[in-house]
Amino acid sequence: MICLALFRPFLLGVFAYLPLASALAQTASPTPLTSAAAPGGCVHPFGLDDNTEYVYQLLDHNGKSQGLIRNRVVSLGSETNKKQTITTNTVLIKSGIYDTKSRLVHSQDLTYRCRQDTSFTDGLGELSFESLRRFRDRRLAFAPVPLAWPNQPTVGSELPGGGVTVDVSSSVVDIAKVFSKVQKRRVTGDLSPITTPAGTFSCYKIESEREAGTLAHVDMLLRTVNKVVDYYSPNVGIVKTEVYGKNGKLEQTRVLTERNLGGKTNQSAAQKKVKVKFKE
């Protein structure tokens, strides 16, 4: 016969622990949303790696498709400053815009960078190719300014602007300046879940003003100004972008629908049937 007295200290310890375990279970809170990107250092901008491809759906104000943007990583690299003290990692991206019938409309090369605790997108990506259509036979000199995306931005903080300016000229005369500037950038929302067809990502909300125009003469400026809201994940990049007109109404949305990480793909059912090859 087993003597219960021998187990009394053990049983008392178990019963004493039960109320504490119950209290812990009741007060436990969900794991807070955090950035997957480290506060310092970077391997590649937004965690992009070789053979990675992102697909974005372009939607009008009614949610109707206007086409696709496909961004594919074609090479990785690095740059070092003259003093050999700071290394900047780079990603070369082939970016293609496709119409609603999956036909390539325009393609360009973009370079993303990262150093220390910040990634940078190419300012060239802010320019609408339509603004250069009338100057297709002219000389074009591009001067892009990258946009900074910190790994852990502070809500309420301001971010530096960026964009691109294009000097249009002929062999004998300057013709115009075409520009797209992103300015007044401010972090207005902390990490929150944003759900897209490619998955759910923890994103910061960043609001800005995009000014685009053509300066043909000193006294002739044609421009438009839009409010832009970006939902940005430090470990993914731009997940969703909303563009608003002067009246404050939504004009266009760009949303991540497919994320191919070197063979592993997250995509919407609508995109599974779309297979488009880049025209190199």
Rank of each mutant, 00 (worst) to 15 (best):
residue 186 R to M: 11
residue 248 G to K: 05
residue 236 V to E: 13
residue 208 S to A: 15
residue 90 T to E: 09
residue 232 Y to E: 09
residue 95 S to N: 07
residue 196 T to W: 01
residue 271 Q to A: 10
residue 247 N to T: 08
residue 153 P to R: 01
residue 39 P to E: 02
residue 280 E to P: 00
residue 196 T to S: 03
residue 190 D to L: 07
residue 8 R to K: 15
residue 95 S to V: 06
residue 35 S to V: 15
residue 278 F to T: 01
residue 173 V to I: 03
residue 163 G to Q: 06
residue 108 Q to H: 14
residue 8 R to G: 06
residue 59 L to K: 14
residue 118 T to K: 13
residue 101 K to H: 04
residue 269 A to P: 01
residue 227 K to P: 09
residue 21 A to Y: 07
residue 265 T to P: 07
residue 238 I to W: 00
residue 56 Y to M: 08
residue 262 G to P: 00
residue 2 I to K: 14
residue 183 Q to L: 12
residue 43 V to L: 14
residue 82 K to W: 08
residue 231 Y to L: 13
residue 181 K to E: 10
residue 131 S to A: 13
residue 48 L to C: 06
residue 3 C to P: 10
residue 109 D to Y: 13
residue 52 T to V: 14
residue 201 F to G: 11
residue 184 K to C: 12
residue 226 N to I: 13
residue 17 Y to L: 15
residue 225 V to K: 10
residue 90 T to A: 10
residue 111 T to R: 15
residue 210 R to I: 15
residue 219 D to L: 12
residue 171 S to F: 08
residue 217 H to E: 07
residue 156 G to H: 02
residue 68 L to Q: 06
residue 172 V to D: 11
residue 94 K to G: 00
residue 155 V to A: 12
residue 105 V to A: 06
residue 50 D to T: 00
residue 71 N to V: 02
residue 155 V to L: 11
residue 113 R to D: 12
residue 21 A to D: 08
residue 225 V to W: 03
residue 99 D to C: 13
residue 259 R to S: 04
residue 136 R to L: 11
residue 237 G to P: 12
residue 271 Q to V: 07
residue 224 T to Q: 12
residue 239 V to W: 08
residue 38 A to S: 11
residue 2 I to H: 10
residue 68 L to I: 04
residue 186 R to Y: 01
residue 48 L to Y: 04
residue 74 V to H: 06
residue 269 A to V: 11
residue 270 A to V: 06
residue 89 N to E: 12
residue 78 S to V: 03
residue 76 L to N: 06
residue 28 A to V: 10
residue 49 D to A: 11
residue 205 K to T: 14
residue 170 S to N: 06
residue 76 L to K: 09
residue 192 S to Y: 00
residue 33 L to K: 02
residue 191 L to H: 07
residue 196 T to Q: 01
residue 60 D to M: 06
residue 244 Y to N: 05
residue 86 I to L: 11
residue 68 L to F: 05
residue 269 A to E: 03
residue 48 L to G: 05
residue 249 K to H: 12
residue 170 S to R: 01
residue 267 Q to F: 00
residue 7 F to E: 00
residue 181 K to D: 09
residue 214 T to F: 09
residue 93 I to F: 11
residue 178 V to D: 02
residue 150 P to E: 02
residue 277 K to N: 07
residue 262 G to V: 07
residue 146 P to N: 11
residue 232 Y to G: 08
residue 107 S to I: 02
residue 128 S to C: 08
residue 75 S to A: 10
residue 249 K to M: 12
residue 226 N to V: 13
residue 71 N to L: 03
residue 29 S to D: 04
residue 120 F to I: 03
residue 16 A to Q: 02
residue 273 K to Y: 03
residue 85 T to C: 09
residue 15 F to N: 09
residue 84 Q to Y: 10
residue 29 S to C: 05
residue 26 Q to H: 06
residue 212 A to Y: 01
residue 172 V to R: 05
residue 111 T to V: 15
residue 264 K to A: 09
residue 37 A to N: 07
residue 84 Q to R: 13
residue 54 Y to E: 04
residue 18 L to P: 13
residue 81 N to Q: 08
residue 274 V to W: 02
residue 242 E to A: 04
residue 129 F to V: 09
residue 249 K to I: 04
